[in-house]
Each structure stands twice: as C-alpha cells, then as structure tokens.
Amino acid sequence: MIAQLSIATGFLLILIGLYGALIQRNILRMIVAFTVADTGVNIVIVAVGFMAGRTAPILDAAVPVADAAARIIDPLPQALVLTAIVIGLGTTALMLAYAFKLYEKRRTLDIDKFTDLRG
C-alpha cells in the first residue's frame, strides 16, 4: 500500500514538474519545475525498492550481516537514487548558471525571447 501510494505521488510530482516546465514562460520557474520532476523521479526510484515489512539496508548493530538478506529492503535503488540526486543537482546548477547568463545577456527570463536559431 505504501509502495503504491509513494509511486503514485512520485508520478504525480513528475507530471506536475513536466507540466510546469512546459507551460511556464519564465526560465527560473522552468528550472524549479524540473527540480520538482527530479524529486518525483527519485521518490519513484526509492519506492520501487520498497518491500513491506523490512527495514532500511544499513548494516549496523540492528541488522547484522548474516540475516541482512532477509530483513532489509532492496538496497540497489537506494544507491541509484543517490547518484540520481547528485546528477539532478548537477544539471540544475548548470541550468541556473545558464539562466543567470541568459538574463545577463538579454535582460529577460522569458523563454520565448530566445528563439533566434530557427529553421
């Protein structure tokens, strides 16, 4: 139940993010929308790895190595989501830098003003 719910919210966030990115004229709002979508994706990734009745895959005192395989949820998505988050951060930072440069050059943040290369 939790898994389905979280996957659903993840997808919902993705859709909201995409909708925001495609409708908003303002670049910053687009970037924010994309970050929303990224978080949505990350939620989905984590939710996929969820197994009912199991605990977080941290091998410490609470969960010894021996019976780890039976008690922890699938650790792999967790790992993936870390990289995904880092990469999401990287691209968002780059887009913000672009947004700054675009504003500096054209004094506007309206995406429709940057349609010079066409045809």
Partner: peptide, 29 residues
C-alpha cells in the same frame, strides 16, 4: 551569439530525457 540559448534548450530537453530514462531503468530493474 546564440550559444547560450542553444545550450539551455539542450539542457531542457535532456532533463526530460533523463526523467524518462530513469523511470524506465528503475522499472526495468
């Protein structure tokens, strides 16, 4: 003159692609 806007367009579309790719990967996994 328009390298900036070209780059930004590239990043926008790449974001959408990466979203789809990630979802595809995780569900394939």
């Amino acid at each position: 003159a328009h390298a900036l806007s070209a780059g930004f367009k590239y990043l926008v579309v790449s974001q959408v692609i990466s979203i789809l790719l990630l979802i595809g990967i995780i569900f394939a996994y």
